[in-house]
């Protein structure tokens, strides 16, 4: 429905808002409001809302401007500090991830070494030497795998660590 805007709306609103309505309002305007549904609604709504606004003014107890200013200062400072720490945190996260990757690689290597050594016969030193010689190749293979294991673990852990730390911010 198109609005049937009345040309008297501004005068009616002003009359209500300045407290002139209805006692000191011009009789012609009062007659108009009686016949105009749009202006009658305007009077009803404006009177109700202005009364409620007066109520709201008495209910409100906003904190003092000094307190709001201090809180804003503190919060802004904390946010600035957090923002400054963020790059450092990311570097820490990467370092932790790299260290964890290396540790995982070493543990994997140690596991392989223990498995191999548990199969060693200990009957005689010559037999042990023979086993050592035979296990030399697999161990060398495991050592050569270490950087790859560490790299794979880092690639998996680094994004996870960065995500966890950044999401905590």
């Amino acid at each position: 429905m198109r609005p049937t805007v009345c040309s008297h709306e501004a005068s009616v609103w002003e009359s209500v808002a300045t407290g002139q309505w209805p006692d000191t309002t011009d009789q012609a305007l009062k007659d108009h409001v009686r016949d105009c549904a749009s202006c009658a609604d305007l009077v009803a709504v404006t009177s109700a809302l202005l009364a409620d606004a007066a109520c709201a003014r008495t209910e409100s107890a906003p904190p003092s401007s000094a307190i709001v200013w201090w809180r804003a200062q503190m919060r802004a400072r904390q946010e600035a500090a957090r923002a400054a720490e963020r790059p450092l945190t990311v570097v820490h996260a990467l370092a932790i991830a790299c260290a964890t990757g290396l540790l995982v690689g070493l543990i994997g290597l140690a596991g392989a070494w223990v498995r191999d050594s548990s199969a060693w016969p200990i009957s005689s030193p010559s037999a042990t030497l023979g086993v050592l010689k035979s296990t030399h190749l697999p161990l060398t293979g495991a050592w050569s795998m270490l950087p790859w294991i560490a790299l794979a673990a880092t690639l998996v852990l680094a994004p996870l660590a960065v995500y966890v730390i950044v999401s905590e911010d």
Binding site: R57, P62, S65, A66, W69, A80
Partner: peptide, 25 residues
Amino acid sequence: SDVALAMDEDAFRGFYDRTSTALWG
């Protein structure tokens, strides 16, 4: 060492005192 805010304290306090009651309503 105040952090950068869009207003200085006096301007903010004046603005707040003029607007906070109506904004709360």
